[in-house]
Design a protein around this nucleic acid. Structure first.
Lengths: 190, 190
DNA sequence: CGGATCGTTGATCAACTTCAACGGTCGTGG
DNA sequence: CCACGACCGTTGAAGTTGATCAACGATCCG
């Protein structure tokens, strides 16, 4: 299953066949079951995760004590708390599996070594971060532009399969409103 | 003034003194006055900007026709509409100077050439994007965690000098509420 | 000096939350 | 394999947060 990461790297940069195993050796394969946590609030955020199969979510506890999901990651997405990861700090976030999930994990120091041994991986991660930042910039625009109701319809139209894939209360949280309000929105258009 | 970019690059990666001028030759220095636009909605987004001095803002027109600011960039920050920049598309955003501003501009193709001629710049931009993405992830958390009023107090406390530097109606727009509401918030605590 | 721009104030209104209660369904243990 | 409990989605009433609109004062700049 790990050839999936190699495939993803190859879609972005040219690597030597001889280097494939060496690159993969930097990563730890992990399997976690539904509702299991990869990272918990209060811990040091040491790892960066690549999703091979399944779905992760990133959430924190807001002041009311409810879980606020801010990101999902499905197949071929990278995820971590980047601020904590870069600075080797404790995180406020929890990373939890929404489904049974397989990931490749790499620690910060190992990632640094990987980048030194294979400078082409600098380009790979440059592209990954550039795209992630662009997506984030666009998402911020949506958050400012759309009402919560419009946000839901826009999301459901853009990612119909994903909208079915996750429970409604997680989707509501991700879109920034309550499950009750999502119910109301859905009632209107059916 | 362009040595400022070299200084910024050096803070992140090691470059040869001999390469400095060659690197700088990829960039176009530009000076724009207050309220002048570097990029306008509807245009192709061809350039990436590094702020040497002054302040830029990124905004779009929402459905009500009001300017919605989503980002500022001050000294030593990079800015563009990254989605449009990467895909050579038209942008929905306008980039405008909040103050008289000096920038270095680089076009997409030139940036690609720069990265090929100086692979160490892959690492530089990887770090830039990684940090920008981390900041964006944190900002998203704040947007979900804080009420508009808390958002203002948190921002004013974190960036007191910047809060003074820009007009209130731009700050209100950036924080996602109306100038009238900002007035009300300020009244409460004075 | 004069006009445009910016910040303020107060009244009314809309979007969304909160809380409590109910019904369906899913999965787990007996 | 069935029954029970926990979890999830829905409904409706009442409450908040922040928007809208209009009007006024202050300030800045030409």
């Amino acid at each position: 299953m790990s050839e999936q990461l190699i495939h993803h790297i190859r879609k972005n940069v040219a690597i030597q066949v001889d280097d494939e195993l060496s690159i993969l050796s930097y990563f730890r394969p992990m399997h976690i079951s539904k509702k299991e946590n990869l990272l918990e609030a209060g811990q040091l955020c040491t790892s960066h995760y690549f999703v091979l199969k399944g779905c992760l979510r990133l959430f924190f506890l807001n002041e009311k004590g409810t879980e606020q999901t801010t990101q999902f990651a499905i197949e071929n997405w990278w995820l971590t708390d980047y601020m904590a990861f870069q600075h080797n700090q404790r995180t406020d976030f929890t990373i939890q599996a929404v489904e049974p999930t397989a990931v490749l994990a790499i620690d910060f120091q190992r990632q640094e070594q990987l980048l030194i041994q294979f400078p082409v991986m600098e380009r790979y991660f440059r592209l990954i971060y550039q795209r992630a930042y662009a997506a984030s910039q666009l998402r911020t625009k949506y958050l400012y532009d759309f009402s919560r109701e419009e946000l839901y319809h826009h999301f459901a139209k853009s990612y119909p399969e994903f909208t079915q894939r996750v429970p409604q209360y997680l989707l509501a949280s991700f879109l920034g409103f309550t499950p009750e309000y999502l119910s109301e929105i859905r009632k209107k258009r059916s």
